[in-house]
Amino acid sequence: QRITLKDYAMRFGQTKTAKDLGVYQSAINKAIHAGRKIFLTINADGSVYAEEVKDGEVKPFPS
């Protein structure tokens, strides 16, 4: 399943989102408010992988 960072954070909370991605909650808040195009893939085992689309390139998040 693929979902935006904002939607994932709204569904699970910023604290869990940060923990799942290995970053601080403040980084999640800042990324959402900056309007960054970050998409999360939720794997069947429950693990989460995030990618950011920037300038036409897709890069892992966090980099």
Rank of each mutant, 00 (worst) to 15 (best):
Q1F: 13
Q1R: 09
Q1N: 13
R2E: 05
R2H: 07
I3C: 08
I3G: 02
I3V: 12
L5C: 02
L5S: 00
K6M: 10
D7Y: 06
D7K: 06
D7T: 06
D7R: 06
Y8R: 00
Y8I: 01
Y8G: 00
A9P: 00
A9W: 07
A9S: 08
M10D: 15
M10L: 13
M10Q: 12
M10F: 11
R11P: 01
R11H: 11
R11W: 10
R11I: 14
F12P: 00
F12V: 07
G13E: 01
G13L: 03
Q14G: 09
T15F: 13
K16T: 06
T17K: 00
K19G: 08
K19Y: 10
K19M: 11
D20S: 06
D20N: 05
D20L: 11
D20Y: 04
L21Q: 00
L21C: 04
L21M: 04
G22C: 07
G22N: 09
V23T: 14
V23H: 03
Y24F: 09
Y24L: 13
Y24W: 12
Y24V: 14
Y24E: 15
Y24M: 14
Q25V: 15
Q25A: 14
Q25W: 12
Q25N: 08
A27C: 15
A27I: 15
A27F: 11
N29G: 13
K30P: 04
K30G: 10
K30R: 13
A31G: 03
A31F: 10
I32F: 03
I32R: 01
I32C: 03
H33R: 14
H33G: 10
H33T: 14
A34T: 12
A34Q: 13
G35E: 11
G35T: 05
R36N: 06
R36G: 04
K37H: 15
K37W: 08
I38E: 00
I38G: 00
F39S: 04
F39H: 05
T41L: 09
T41W: 10
N43A: 11
A44W: 10
A44V: 12
A44D: 12
A44P: 15
A44H: 11
D45V: 05
D45L: 04
D45W: 05
D45G: 05
G46A: 05
G46E: 05
S47V: 07
S47L: 07
S47N: 08
V48D: 00
V48S: 03
V48R: 03
Y49W: 13
Y49S: 12
Y49H: 10
A50K: 01
A50G: 11
E51T: 09
E51H: 07
E51A: 05
E51V: 12
E51R: 06
E52V: 04
E52T: 03
E52A: 02
V53D: 10
V53K: 06
V53Y: 14
V53Q: 09
K54W: 12
K54M: 15
D55C: 09
G56L: 06
G56D: 10
G56P: 02
E57F: 13
E57G: 10
E57S: 11
E57H: 13
E57M: 13
V58P: 06
V58F: 09
K59P: 04
K59Q: 13
K59V: 15
P60A: 09
P60V: 08
F61I: 02
P62M: 05
P62W: 05
P62N: 05
S63W: 08
S63T: 11
